[in-house]
């Protein structure tokens, strides 16, 4: 029964986190490889996949299902954040992420994000360029810029 209690504690922990980063939900390091993320996700699935707990109290099962579904989204985010980039560009195998840029660049990046969410591609492009000016080393920013440029071409 304690495995079940542990599972519920885990679910509450997952759902209780405010704006968690993907690696936090997967319980891996931020610079982990995709392979490590996959193994972490499989480990969670082996104990927490809702199919394995059909006899659970329905309310508890709902909790576990929601927690698992959040972690699935985190796994997808981690994978898509890391997979697009070639290994060689990563400093020591780390996936580039928004956390590694300078704080000044981050301000511009957040503005760019907002503009892009509104569909204002040109504004987003400009903000991204400002961010790159503030942090020319960031692979993450250069790739974000490339994606926006692609979208502008297609639009």
């Amino acid at each position: 029964m304690s495995a079940r209690a542990d599972l519920l504690l885990w679910a509450q922990r997952v759902l209780g986190q405010k704006k968690p980063r993907p690696h936090q939900l997967l319980e891996i390091r931020e610079d982990a490889t995709v392979e490590q993320a996959t193994q972490a996700f499989h480990k969670i699935a082996r104990s927490a996949h809702p199919d394995l707990h059909r006899t659970m109290d329905p309310e508890d099962l709902e909790l576990v299902t929601r927690a698992y579904s959040r972690v699935a989204a985190a796994y997808q985010d981690f994978r898509s954040g890391a997979r697009d980039r070639p290994e060689s560009q990563r400093p020591a195998g780390a996936a580039p992420s928004s956390a590694q840029m300078s704080s000044k660049a981050l301000v511009y990046y957040r503005k760019a994000e907002l503009a892009l969410k509104r569909g204002e591609l040109q504004v987003g492009l400009l903000q991204l360029k400002m961010a790159i000016a503030a942090d020319p080393q960031s692979v993450f920013l250069r790739e974000a810029l490339a994606r926006v440029e692609d979208e502008l071409k297609n639009a």
Binding site: S69, A73, Y75
Partner: peptide
């Protein structure tokens, strides 16, 4: 929700 994202998933 992206194609090929693992399910069940929630955003």
């Amino acid at each position: 929700l992206d194609k090929n994202a693992p399910i069940p998933i929630e955003r």
